[in-house]
Write a protein that binds this DNA or RNA. Structure first.
Ligand code: SF4
Ligand code: SF4
Lengths: 162, 162
DNA sequence: TAATAGCGGATATATTTTATCCGTTATTTA
DNA sequence: TAAATAACGGATAAAATATATCCGCTATTA
């Protein structure tokens, strides 16, 4: 019951992209360098973000990733689901149909109470994630990032786009 | 991001125990037989339920598991946490401290916005699971279980306690 | 035309989940 | 009192999943 670490990576990447000058893109390689994570693996994750329509891509030199839409229109749920999918965290293996008391599948009309409660909880979890947008995260980052880190990051970015 | 199947098993087992005649217990072996799951593995899970104080145990012949408290006082969350633990589904690896912009750990005073939003979502998920009790599940089971299955189950249980 | 960059598929490695086994202690029944 | 039952804990083993790398391909830019 744990989110893949790719979620942490890609959300950070999107926050980075949200702060980029307009019309600028950042390659997976550079993102990986900035966050000190495995470049090829991060690239895989970013490709999922691309397929999910969260980021857009540009090939070739000076290409890379940029947001596909305004940060206000990208929710934390969008990013989580792009990496970890939309399937409910509870997977019913229908054990009620097995064993000495099992009867034919057609007699089970509805998902049982257990599955319903689990799905409801999964739903409220997703609803909560939907409330936070990338814009929110960007604002929090801008106000809470230690000044020293902010300066270092800006310097590093200037070197990138010089 | 998936709950272990032990959750499904043990919740079913607890529902079974909730329906048992008072002063009766059911062994892991019998529970496994009823639900057609691996006996040793189910036993491991039931031991976790025991450690969590959800079920009580009795050794020796005619021993086994029974509820440690009224079904109304056992929540779905209790059972989920007994198996899958209480740690938040989002694990932050502190990548903000790495790479060319990282600064010393003491400069990060609060968990960042990402971690906070994730923990909040985790919280509402647990809050929702807390709303359903074993008693609720028992009632739903009693009203929704197909009659044929109910009869088979009762017959099987009579054989057990004859 | 050379270098860059995303993409998809194949593969390797690590970690976690699932499952089994065994020796121990406690309890009941015969 | 002996034999059977059952929980418990620890040690593995097997399977599945998550993590990570690599390669050839196409598109784009300078
Ligand atoms: S009773 Fe619910 S959780 Fe159990 S097997 Fe059926 S659908 Fe799954
Ligand atoms: S910014 Fe948040 S998610 Fe990212 S490393 Fe720090 S605490 Fe973790």
């Amino acid at each position: 019951m744990r989110l893949s670490e790719g979620v942490e990576w890609t959300v950070h990447c999107c926050t980075m992209l949200a702060g980029l000058p307009p019309d600028k893109a950042m390659s997976a390689k550079k993102l990986a360098e900035f966050f000190d994570v495995p470049p090829d693996y991060l690239a895989k994750h970013m490709q999922q973000m691309s397929k999910a329509g969260i980021v857009q891509t540009k090939k070739g030199p000076n290409g890379g990733y940029s947001l596909a839409k305004p940060a206000r229109d990208i929710t934390l749920l969008d990013m989580v689901e792009a990496i970890d999918g939309r399937i409910c965290s509870f997977k019913c293996t229908e054990i009620r149909q097995r064993g000495p008391s099992g009867v034919s599948p057609c007699q089970y009309k509805t998902p049982c109470g257990i599955a319903r409660a689990m799905r409801k909880a999964d739903q409220v979890w997703r609803d909560e994630l939907r409330k936070t947008t990338l814009f929110d995260l960007q604002m929090i980052g801008l106000t809470e990032t230690p000044p020293e880190q902010m300066n270092k990051a800006i310097t590093w970015l200037k070197g990138l786009f010089k």
